[in-house]
C-alpha cells in the first residue's frame, strides 16, 4: 500500500510537469501544425530565469514567498519574448514550407537557444530551493514528501482546467477550434489567422516556460536541461494524440506513472520504457490514444 501510494504520487508529480510542458507543445501543434523542437528551450529558459531571479531576490533579502511570483513572471516573460520573437522573426516566413522542414528549423533554433542560455547564465548550476524550503514537508505513505512537489499536481490540474475552459467556454476557444479544424474556412469566415497563430505560439511558449519555472526549485538547473524534456514531451503528445489537450493529460499520466513504477520496481528499464510505449502507440494507433476528431475534407 505504501509503495503503491508512493509510486502514484511520484508518478503524478512527474506527469504534472510533463503535462504543463506538453500542453504547450500540443496546442502549438494543434493550431499551427508545427512540431516545435525549440519547445525544450522554452522549458530551459523558464527554469533558468526563475532560478536566477529567485536566487537574486533571496540574496537581496526579499521574502522567500516572492519565489512564487517570480515563477509566474518568469514563465510569462520568457513566453512573451521568445514566443513573439520566434514566431514573428522566423516561423511566420515558413508557414508555406513543408511541415518537416519547419521541424528542422525549430531544431536549428533549439541549438541556438541552448547556447544563448550558456552565454547568458553561465555554466554553473543554479539551485533555487527557497520556495521548496518555504513549504516544508509532510509524511505521506510512510515517507517524507516536500509539499512543493505536491502543489505541482495542483498547478497541472489548474492548467488543464484553464485550457479546457478557454477552448470550450470562450469565444476565443471557438475561433481557435475553427482554425484547428480548417484553416482556410477560418480565413474565409473572417478570422484573423495570423493573429491567432501569434497568440497561440506565445501561449504555448508560456506553458513551456511555466513547466521549467515551476520545476526549477526542485532540480539543479544546469545546461542540457531542454534536451531530455523535449523528447519526453514528444512521447507524451504522441501517446495521447497530437494536438489534443486531453491527450496530453492522459499521455503524461501514463508516462509519468510508468516511469515511477520502473524506478521503484525495475530501475534498469526506467529510460527506455517511455519510448517503448511511444513506439508501440505509433505502430498500433499512430493518431494517438486520444486524437482529436478529424474533419473530412472533400
Amino acid at each position: 500500500m505504501e509503495t503503491f501510494l508512493t509510486i502514484l504520487l511520484d508518478g503524478l508529480q512527474f506527469s504534472s510537469y510533463l503535462f504543463i510542458v506538453s500542453a504547450g507543445l500540443t496546442i502549438i501543434f494543434g493550431v499551427m501544425k508545427i512540431l516545435n523542437v525549440a519547445h525544450g528551450s522554452f522549458y530551459a529558459w523558464g527554469a533558468y530565469t526563475a532560478a536566477f531571479f529567485i536566487g537574486k531576490f533571496s540574496d537581496m533579502g526579499m521574502p522567500d514567498a516572492m519565489g512564487f511570483l517570480i515563477i509566474i513572471a518568469a514563465a510569462i516573460v520568457v513566453g512573451l519574448i521568445l514566443g513573439f520573437v520566434i514566431e514573428q522573426g522566423i516561423l511566420k516566413y515558413m508557414y508555406h514550407r513543408d511541415e518537416v522542414l519547419i521541424v528542422l528549423a525549430t531544431f536549428g533554433l533549439f541549438l541556438v537557444l541552448e547556447d544563448i542560455i550558456l552565454i547568458a547564465f553561465g555554466t554553473d548550476p543554479y539551485f533555487a530551493y527557497q520556495p521548496m524550503a518555504l513549504l516544508d514537508s509532510v509524511e505521506l505513505g510512510g515517507i517524507i514528501r516536500d509539499v512543493y512537489g505536491l502543489t505541482l499536481i495542483a498547478v497541472a490540474a489548474l492548467v488543464a482546467l484553464g485550457c479546457w475552459y478557454l477552448l470550450n467556454k470562450t469565444k476565443w476557444g471557438t475561433l481557435l477550434k475553427a482554425v484547428i479544424y480548417d484553416r482556410e474556412m477560418g480565413i474565409s469566415m473572417g478570422i484573423n489567422v495570423p493573429l491567432v497563430y501569434t497568440l497561440t505560439f506565445i501561449g504555448g511558449a508560456i506553458l513551456g516556460g511555466l513547466g521549467g519555472a515551476y520545476i526549477a526549485p526542485t532540480i539543479s538547473v544546469a545546461p542540457g536541461l531542454g534536451t531530455e524534456v523535449i523528447v519526453l514531451s514528444f512521447a507524451v503528445v504522441v501517446v495521447g494524440g497530437m494536438g489534443s489537450i486531453a491527450g496530453a493529460a492522459i499521455g503524461s499520466i501514463i508516462i509519468g506513472i510508468l516511469r515511477a513504477l520502473a524506478v521503484h520496481e525495475l530501475p534498469q528499464v526506467e529510460l527506455f520504457v517511455v519510448f517503448a510505449v511511444m513506439a508501440v502507440v505509433l505502430v498500433f494507433r499512430p493518431e494517438g490514444l486520444f486524437a482529436p476528431a478529424k474533419p473530412r475534407k472533400i
Partner: peptide, 14 residues
C-alpha cells in the same frame, strides 16, 4: 547529469 531524483529518493526512503 540527470539532476532530478524525486522517484529515486522515494524508493530509497521506502
Amino acid at each position: 547529469f540527470a539532476g532530478q531524483y524525486g522517484s529515486e529518493i522515494s524508493a530509497m526512503s521506502l
